[in-house]
Amino acid sequence: MPSTKLTPEQTAARFGVHKAIDNFPSKLTPQEEANVKVVLEYMEIAYSPKDNKGASSVKHLCAPGNTFSAASTFPEAHTAEEYSESHSHVMSSLQDLHIIQFDVVVAKENFVSLRYTATGSHIGGPHNGIQATKRKAQWTAAGNFVIDEKSGLIQHWWKDWDKMQMWKQLGWVKPDNDKVEFA
């Protein structure tokens, strides 16, 4: 299936989210379009220091009984609402955190997968006892979503995130922040 690029203006007109999509399927069914819209709206809210006020900010996009899985990055979050709550705490440290672009968005039936590039600076409160470093980071992450076919809301989300590279850039790796290398 050929892919296309969407400018921030095209993504905003189509999905209500003002972010470029670098690789996007050229043809989707109306239901797949609706599923992408739900996922992009969730991501826009969850990654907005202004709009993410915790779990209640995304509740309207989450199916009852939904699940979330990202044991290595957010081990305490087990629902999409709990992820938004946990992420709001990260954003209290990274007060300018935002998604730069969606690198890839794919939709097939009730599955939506995306990879995105984000950035943020530690200009806010402490993170795990580390005072603001004023350092900036850029990283990638990916999410795979299942949309509930009856409600059209997020039923499950798996998240993968290049957390250690982000933490290294921000100076959040202890004990020798700048000397630590990862294989």
Rank of each mutant, 00 (worst) to 15 (best):
S3P: 06
S3F: 09
G16V: 12
G16Y: 08
H18V: 08
F24K: 08
P25W: 13
S26W: 03
P30C: 06
P30R: 03
V36N: 03
V36F: 06
K37F: 00
V38G: 06
V38E: 07
E41F: 02
Y42N: 05
I45K: 03
Y47L: 03
S56V: 05
S56T: 15
L61Q: 10
C62L: 10
A71E: 09
S72T: 10
F74W: 12
A80L: 15
E85L: 03
H87D: 11
H89Y: 12
V90I: 14
V90Q: 09
V90R: 02
D96C: 06
L97R: 11
F102N: 06
V106S: 04
A107Q: 06
K108S: 08
K108F: 10
N110M: 01
N110S: 01
N110D: 01
F111S: 09
T119G: 07
T119P: 11
G120F: 03
H122D: 00
I123M: 08
I123N: 12
G124R: 02
G125N: 10
G125E: 02
P126L: 05
H127P: 00
I130E: 11
A132L: 07
T133I: 04
T133F: 03
K134A: 15
W139E: 15
T140H: 05
T140N: 08
G143W: 07
I147G: 01
D148E: 06
S151W: 09
S151N: 13
G152K: 08
K159S: 14
G171P: 15
W172V: 06
D176M: 15
F182C: 05
